[in-house]
């Protein structure tokens, strides 16, 4: 039922787009069929897959690194008050540093390289992950820490069995917001200093004033991100958080 509702909602958006494009300049806002035709053409030439693949690779690499760095920083700040007092301001500073500044500085420091591109996005997105994880760690239930201490659980047992399950909602929030923001920043990175990727293609077709192709590339990546959400993130979230729906049965048992 939810899928039907989501499809109907998207259909409504499509109709709205059609309606607005009908009364606009088609060069500025082409109708959906023109964008679809551009998409099919790009798929036919193989260009779409090449550039989509390049962008996806950068998203995975940059977000993976940002995730690892952000989780380590977030857990450290959340658990160790001294570190939090000293370094929380660093995190908020980097959180508010414009992505463009980080990208330009990385390109200047390391040259127009793949490493600089990925590093820039990592530096820009790690603070967001860190903030989410730190908030999650600060909401840990102290009774589980007391249990772990009372039973002498090892550090790895605590991380695996107590910390990660409590962090799950925050990790999923960080995953969602982080992924959606990462790919947008990646486009800027590609637009400024790469010769492949969706951002590069958008820049190219901007110069040619072909808005239909620009929208085709943007739409294709939105579809990829939606597929990741529906085929990977949601099923995983549903699986790891299945225990949250427990409870009603308990009332019936003695």
């Amino acid at each position: 039922m939810r899928i039907v509702e989501a499809c109907l909602s998207l259909l409504g958006l499509l109709l709205l787009w059609w309606g607005v494009s009908a009364i606009s300049d088609p060069l500025v806002l082409p109708p959906p069929d023109a964008v679809f035709y551009a998409l099919v053409t790009e798929i036919g030439t193989g260009e779409l897959w090449t550039h989509l693949g390049a962008t996806l690779f950068r998203v995975v690499m940059a977000f993976g690194l940002a995730w690892m760095v952000g989780v380590v920083i977030g857990v450290s700040l959340g658990r160790i008050k001294l570190l939090d007092r000293w370094f929380w301001s660093w995190v908020t500073t980097f959180l508010n540093l414009p992505a463009l500044v980080v990208i330009v500085v990385c390109y200047l420091a390391l040259g127009m390289t793949e490493t600089a591109a990925i590093l820039a996005v990592t530096i820009n997105k790690a603070p967001l992950i860190a903030v989410n994880v730190r908030d999650g760690v600060r909401q840990f239930d102290p009774k589980y820490d007391e249990f772990a201490s009372n039973y002498g659980l090892s550090f790895s047992q605590k991380v695996r069995s107590i910390w990660i399950p409590q962090l799950e909602p925050f990790l999923f929030t960080a995953l969602r917001t982080g992924l959606s923001l990462t790919w947008k920043v990646i486009l800027v990175v590609e637009l400024i200093g790469r010769s492949s990727g969706v951002g590069f293609q958008i820049h190219l077709y901007f110069q040619l004033f072909e808005v239909d192709v620009i929208l085709a590339y943007a739409l294709s990546f939105i579809v990829v991100m939606q597929l990741i959400e529906w085929l990977c993130v949601r099923p995983l979230e549903k699986y790891v958080q299945r225990w949250r729906s427990d409870g009603q049965l308990a009332q019936l048992q003695v």
Binding site: A250, Q251, Q253, V254
Partner: peptide, 10 residues
């Protein structure tokens, strides 16, 4: 069973 599927006594 997970704890949430058991009664308080259990």
């Amino acid at each position: 069973l997970r704890p949430g599927q058991m009664s308080l006594g259990m």
